[in-house]
């Protein structure tokens, strides 16, 4: 099975406190720790496991700036067969459809049976996978948390639905699936693993190489534009306690006692 996995380099939400720059145009990015989007890492692991079972290859692709190379290389160290970078100034400011349009061009250069994306990334939009499927006119399923390869040209998949129940379906290939976290245990990548793939060449394609018309993606092609970032003024918020560790503990015990929090 030939599998393409789309990955994004994002500020690691577990490592960072996100704050907004003075003019509101962007978040402060100077000191951010970046990593591969959490959902994408599960997608790459799943692709590798499928190939380990039924054979084939895994290609990892990222749209972004040249910085995206580090996450592509990291996913190659996990065991992906090859990497691909889609980089062009003309891609900047793309909306979800723009990103999906760029990825379609990359998908059409190969003969893929399956494309995986993460269910969502740092902006929580959860849109690129479904859009890519529609652009390719392939069937799609979101929030996938189980994949079994059937004998014919189909997969048996599970989708996570409300309350943690699982909806089982059959889907024809080629198809696009967006992956939910928790469906596998992504393998650990050490320095050694990264070193092994350090000199593997990762092709970089621009708009011209991908045959993407000027203005169809990027800021000019975007129907949806982010105007600014802000922190909303919401309600009163919490009563914040202050003091030393011991003082905080005492205050909490008092509050818990009066509110029935100690049984």
């Amino acid at each position: 099975m030939e599998i393409l996995v789309c990955v994004k380099r994002v500020p690691d939400s577990a490592e960072n406190e996100i704050s907004i720059g003075a003019d509101g145009a962007d978040i402060r990015r100077d000191d951010l720790v970046y990593s591969v989007n959490e959902w994408d890492n599960y997608a790459v692991e799943e692709a590798i496991q499928i190939v380990e079972r039924v054979g084939g290859s895994v290609t990892v692709v990222a749209v972004g700036t040249a910085d995206a190379e580090e996450v592509v290389r990291r996913e190659m160290a996990m065991g992906a067969t090859q990497g691909l970078l889609l980089v062009d100034e003309a891609f900047e400011g793309s909306d979800g459809l723009g990103i999906a349009t760029i990825l379609r061009a990359a998908a059409q250069r190969g003969q893929y049976d399956l494309i995986l994306t993460g269910a969502q990334a740092d902006d929580g939009a959860a849109q690129v996978g479904g859009m890519l499927a529609a652009l390719l006119d392939w069937p799609y399923a979101s929030l996938v948390n189980r994949i079994e390869v059937n004998a014919g040209e189909s997969l048996r998949i599970g989708r996570e639905i409300e309350g943690g129940s699982q909806e089982i379906s059959e889907i024809a290939t080629p198809c696009v699936l967006s992956i939910q976290t928790g469906l596998n245990e992504p393998r650990y990548v050490g320095i050694r693993g990264i070193r092994k793939v350090a000199s593997v060449e990762i092709p970089m394609l621009d708009a011209a190489a991908l045959g993407i018309a000027e203005g169809s993606v990027g800021q000019t092609g975007a129907k949806v534009q982010r105007v600014d970032y802000f922190v909303p003024q919401t309600g009163l918020g919490a009563e914040m306690l202050a003091g030393s560790t011991v003082e905080l503990a005492s205050q909490l015990v008092e509050i818990l006692k009066t509110k029935g929090g100690l049984k």
């Binding site: 978040i27 740092d122 902006d123 949806v224 534009q225 982010r226 105007v227 600014d228 970032y229 802000f230």
Partner: peptide, 11 residues
Amino acid sequence: EFNGQVSTHLH
């Protein structure tokens, strides 16, 4: 975005 850490205006 970022799990509710920041909000954005979109047009």
